[in-house]
Structure formats: structure tokens, C-alpha cells
Design a protein around this nucleic acid. Sequence first.
RNA 1: GCGCCCGUAGCUCAGCUGGAUAGAGCGUCGGCCUUCGAAGCCGAAUGUCGCAAGUUCGAAUCUUGCCGGGCGUGCCA
Length: 617
Amino acid sequence: MSLVDRVRTSIESALSRLASGGALGEKGPRAITEARGWTVERPKRPEHGHYATNAAMVLTKAVGMPPRAIAEQLVGALADDAVIQSAEIAGPGFVNLRLRPRAIHEELAAIVAAGPLYGRKAAATGERVNVEFVSANPTGPITVAAARNGIYGDAIATLLELTGHRVTREYYINDFGNQVKAFAESVRLAHEGKPRGENHYQGAYIDEIARYLETRKPDPFAADDVELARTCITTMLHGVPGSKTLPGIRKTLSDLGIDFDVWFSEESLHRWGNVDVAIEKLRAGGYLVEKEGAVFFVAGGASAAKEREEKAAKDDKAQKAYRTEEDGRVVKKRDGAWTYFASDIAYHADKLSRGYDRIIDVWGADHHGYIPRMKNVLEALGLPAEKSEILIYQLVNILRDGEAVKSSKRAGNVITADEVMEEIDEAAGRKGAGRDALRFFFLSRSANTTVDFDLEIAKKKSLDNPVFYVQYGHARLCSILRKAEAIGRYDTVPASIDAWAKLDHPDELAIGLTLSRWPDVLAEAAALREPHRIVFYLQDLARDFQSYFTRMKADPVLPRDSTRQEPDWEKTWDHEKTIARLGWIRAIRAVYASALGAIGISAPERMELPQAAEEDT
RNA sequence: GCGCCCGUAGCUCAGCUGGAUAGAGCGUCGGCCUUCGAAGCCGAAUGUCGCAAGUUCGAAUCUUGCCGGGCGUGCCA
């Protein structure tokens, strides 16, 4: 049970004691079972205590007593509580609570014992979940915009794993249709040294692919366009060996910390006839109608469609809504070709056949109009609505020196994730710094927020990224523990709850309380699909303890070198206190590393000061 | 027109399953390195929470209407 839960339990039992003892009047016993909407919350101001409850205010109506009178009773009933040390009435009827240090010590001991497992749910206790994300067209490199999708989707997947679910990360390769055709044509034209048209891909990587394929045997250009397209897509996914500019989609994503379990080809759905099978299944269910030579998918089936159509005929308002989602979406065009929607139906039918409990798709906001039809298809295929989720994140605007750039893969003016990571790696003097910075940048905003990305500003300000502040904190903690190890007598954790007693500074206890919130933060971030909560939690934690360490310079955790040169230092130094505080530091580090891990960011044990930062002044 | 997202400090954004004096980073100004890492710390200034009405003991948070911005509204993918 978490610390907050223990607080809640204490209040609950205090209230029920009061009610059964008659202190809350006649209505008391009923009131406390009916009006359970009260909460235990964290006050914004530290002087309001560790926690506060609004129970007295919420109960006032049902009990028929003024809030402060109820609060007074509650304060009395909380005396001698095992968790709550003091309670006092404040404001309109809040009860501010301060916890016993011992209760916090118990939680810290639990954290140290659990280590990286603290806050996690046991593996494979939850659902089997398929998370499909990125799925960027494999006709060009991974852009910064696609990186947002990848980073968000991967974070969701990790959060689900940490909360007990079994997760499959999946990338849907759109290797079918007109774009792929244009892609192959572009490479062929580059090979032949001919100019490319408006509808072709313009980027320099097209030429690079052509040059590379020219070295392959048998000659890929001898094959037809379909075969060539497959070769081009493969090259895009795996990269050109040895090339810096074309490392391949898989490598780029892997550098971003994203590794997929399944790479699913759209083209294979057609090749193996799965599109026909899935469409026939819908037809059998009565979900397809033919109009004007084309085939439509209709939510709810043909009878529902007819009803709507009749209604639309006599009702002007319904007429307007007629052309909405439910009235049909084309799966097969008049010319007999499948739409993208048809592929998607077959693809999701395949996902369902693999036996997941939940299907999650991560899409950019430009696809949000597509949600209803996808949800309707999933239902038609037999997946209840609550078992599928389509997560939408707002788009990334690309700027250059403050100017908006209409970037497109076709025009070849995209900013790639690779170039951004490389720039930042270089500035920070550490491989992986770019990945960490990019992940932190995107995850520090809610998915509902549109973000501007300016490469010039990103380069210039790369070292201002708060991720380095947070990582620096972790490195400092590690440094202290290294030093403790070097001294030699502190490689032990507090042996019992009593051994923690010397950890009594209000700031130390407050940070301990923050650590105790980690399981709830993780659970909420996972349940709400909001990884940014973890980023903000981390920044709070980092600030709290970096502030503490600077302010506590006069009272260091470890004896200084000069102290240890005094002959009798071991007799006068408070070793118990040091051991307690080192236990606390271990707890901070454990939560810290867990939180960083949950959003896929490394927790470095050392960080060297980069050159650029020194010159900057 | 309709649908989704957004509008909070100079800038970028948290807070939105209702709670006390609305927060953080960056930027600005002023301090702190002989001692556990200065990628750090302390302090100061900065707000009609887009506007209006409603619900309530209490609204940045919920409801409705309006204003402004982004995205979508294909027999494109």
C-alpha cells in the first residue's frame, strides 16, 4: 500500500470511529458511507503540510454540520495515528496533515529494497497489447515529425510494459500504392540520369539509393517497377551500408531508442490475398454496399445505412449529415482498385487474428478524421469499442530561423531525426545525447500540443535542454555513492527502520514523500497515456534535491577529506546519520533511474562538462 | 458549415477526474565556487488563466455561447 493510501485509510477509519461514536450526529453513519467523494491531496505550499484532506468540506452537507466542526472532530480522531503525526484545521475546513518520519522511513526502506522494480507492476499480469506507431511511409528517411510519433508511441508502449502489460511494438510498412510507385520511378530516373517530375521524389537520397543499387548484382534496374520498388523499400529500411546520410529507417529508430517487434508489410496483405478475405468477411456481415460501381463500408451494416438514407431524403438536417462517416467509405474504387482503407481493414483484421486484448494505434492529428471509420471497422470485425484506442498527437511545425517551412518528403526538404541527433551528440560530446534530448523535448509536451521545431534554434540551444539538468542530477547522486564506496565503511544500507531515524531534515522527508509518489505517477501516466507527466515529475525531483545539496554544503552527507585527516574523526562523526542519508540517496537514485528509464532516456553515472559550455561565457 | 486540438508570465509550456496566495524552463536583473559535481544554488520583476454567461461553499479546471489559431472534412495515402 502506498503512503497516500495509508493516509487515506487512516482518515477513513477515523471517520468511521467518529460516526459510530455519534460525534457526527445522527446522519453521521450514513453520511460517511454515502459522501465518499473526499480526497487526499498534496498542498501546493509546504507550510500546509505533507498532505491535506477536504473530507470535512465534502461531508458538511450530508452530515449537517459546518466544515470546521467536522474538521475539529477529525483532528481529534487522528491523534496517535500510526502514519499521521499532526493534523490541523486550515482555511475553509481543510485538514492539513503531517506524516510521521517513521512512515516515510518505511517507504524509503521499501524503495531501496525494491530498487528498479519500485512502482512497477508484476510482468504479464495485464493485457496483451499491440501498439502500432511511426508507420511512416518508407519512401524517405525518418523526419523529426515522425520522430515525435515514434517517441510518443514507444513511451506509451514502455509505460504499458512497466504496468504489467505484454506489449508488441509494431510498424506498418506502407509499401503499396502510388507513393511506392513514384518512389521506384524516381530511383529509376536517377539511375538513368533523367530529370524527375513534380510527382517524383526530389531528395538527394534518391540519387544515393540509385548509386548504391547500381553496385548490386543482379542489376535491380533490370527488374520491373514492382520488383524495383521492393528493392528500394528494403534499402530505405535497412540503409545503404556505410552511408552516414542513409543509415536506414530501422537504424534511425533504433538510435532513437525505438525497436519494433513486428514490421508488417502492406504489400504482403495484397500479395497473400488477405485483403479479399477481410473484405469478404465484412460483406458476409452485411457491412458492404455497392453504389455507382464502387464498394462502400457502412458502419452498423446495410440496414442501418438504408435507414439513414431514408431519413436523409425527407429531413433537411439529416441531409447535411448524410455524407458523414456512417454513410459509407469506399473500399474498392469504381476502377476496381483497392483503397488504402481496404488495406487497413485487412491489416487490422490480421492484428485481431493474432489475439491481442487491446489494439492501440498512434496517429498524427492530420489523420484524426480517419478515426471513426477505423473504430467502426474494428467493431465490425468483432473488437468491442473499448478494446481499441487511437491516440492522436498534434503535429510538428518545421521552422527554419523562425520561418515556417512547408516540408514534404516528396520535395526533399525535410529535417531528419538523424541530423538533429548528430548535431546534439556533437555539442554535448556524448553519443546518445541527441536521442535523450529529442525524447525529452517531445515528451515534455502533452500530445495535445502542437510543437514548433526550429533546427537552427535546436542546434544553438541544444545544451539548454532540461534533460541534461535532470541527467546531471543523476550523475551527482552516483558521484556521492562512488565517494562513499571509496571511503569504505558506508557500503551498507540502514539495517532496520530505527536505523533511518537520523534522517529527519524536513527537506529530506519531503523528498522522501516525493519518491513515494512515483508508483502513482507511473500508473497515472500509463493509464492516461500521458508520458509527459513523468518528465515533469523528474524535473521536480531533480530541482528539489539539487537545491537541497547546494544548500546543505555546510552539513555534508560524507565526511570531507579534511575531516578525515583529523585523527579522531571516526569517533566524532555521526556514522548512523551518514548511513541513513546514503540509504536515502540510494532511494532517490533508484526512482530517478526508473523514471528516466520509463521514458527511454539514459541515466549516466558521469557527465563530462562539454567544451562548448565553457567557451560560451 | 461540421468535427478534433489549442488559447495560462516577454517566449516555450505544465496545471484541466473542481480546492487555499495560478507554477516550471528559457530570457531579464542582483547575489553565491578553498569543502559531497557551478550542466549547480539563492533572491527579484513579470499574469484581465482569449471574452461572456451559467453551475457551486469554491472555477484556469465543469456547461453553454462567442472570438482567435492549427488540423481535418477524397473513389489520396
